[in-house]
Amino acid sequence: MTGKLQTLLLGCVGFGLFVGLWWIATLGHSVSDPPSPPLTFTALLEIAASGELWSNTIASVFRVAWGFVLAAAVGIPFGIALGWYDPLRRAFNPLVQCLRPISPIAWMPVTVLVIGNGYVLNGDDESAIALIFLSSFFPIVTASNSAVNSIDRKFLRSSQNFGVGGLDMLRRVILPAAMPQILTGLRLALGISWVVVVAAEMIGVQHGLGFQVNIARQQLRYDHVGAAMVVIAVIGLLLDSFMARLERATLARRGMLSR
């Protein structure tokens, strides 16, 4: 208990210091300057009351959810297949590793051009989702690939030894053995997605937290910019702790937490 309290108090030290310095640096600023903490807080209440905050948050989370889930749905099986079949890995891994370092932002013109026309959803949703997909797909594929590739040989041999092969082996040995590393990859990818969605919403969209930051900047309401940044931080934190919780719960259910 005292340990927890201590962690909490120490954690507040960093925040306290940051807010303090921020406050001093922005003393006497108005809404068109970099905002002080009180101005930011008032702005936060304003955009929450006007409903802008909620609709923009929902728009961003919606895009991340779609892009991320699609990337996981395609990326995990693909990565596992790469990790399992050597010819497949040799055929596709160089390509994956080549595309992976391209910043998702650099893809933006391409996604807007190719799928920005709104065939199914709103046009701006589709290209943002495609961007999230691209930015989380490569880390997920890479994590799943290396997870399967690095499974301890004795587990595979045990499985063969007991006559467990094929899909049965995939379900009972390969997936559970690779799961911890895949989950870590998912968590990483979700973090990247959240960073990317805000950037993606800066251009050519009408909703989202990135849009909110941009529009506030154009209106010289830097207090609203600050408020949106606070919201971005909090939601990023929530997403990450959600993934961390999922990771721990999955491992704990399999008794693998205390390794």
Binding site: K154, F155, R157, S158, Q160, N161, F162, G163, V164, R172, V173, P176, A177, M179, R254, G255, M256, R259
Partner: peptide, 30 residues
């Protein structure tokens, strides 16, 4: 090829950390 007629016991234990004792022992029973 490997067969359940001859079973290998590994140096560092080869049991599966994601299965309970019960599931581990029942692993090869089909």
């Amino acid at each position: 090829k490997p067969s359940p007629k001859r079973v290998f016991v590994f140096q560092e234990t080869g049991i599966f950390p994601w299965f309970s004792v019960w599931d581990n022992i029942g692993f090869g029973l089909g």
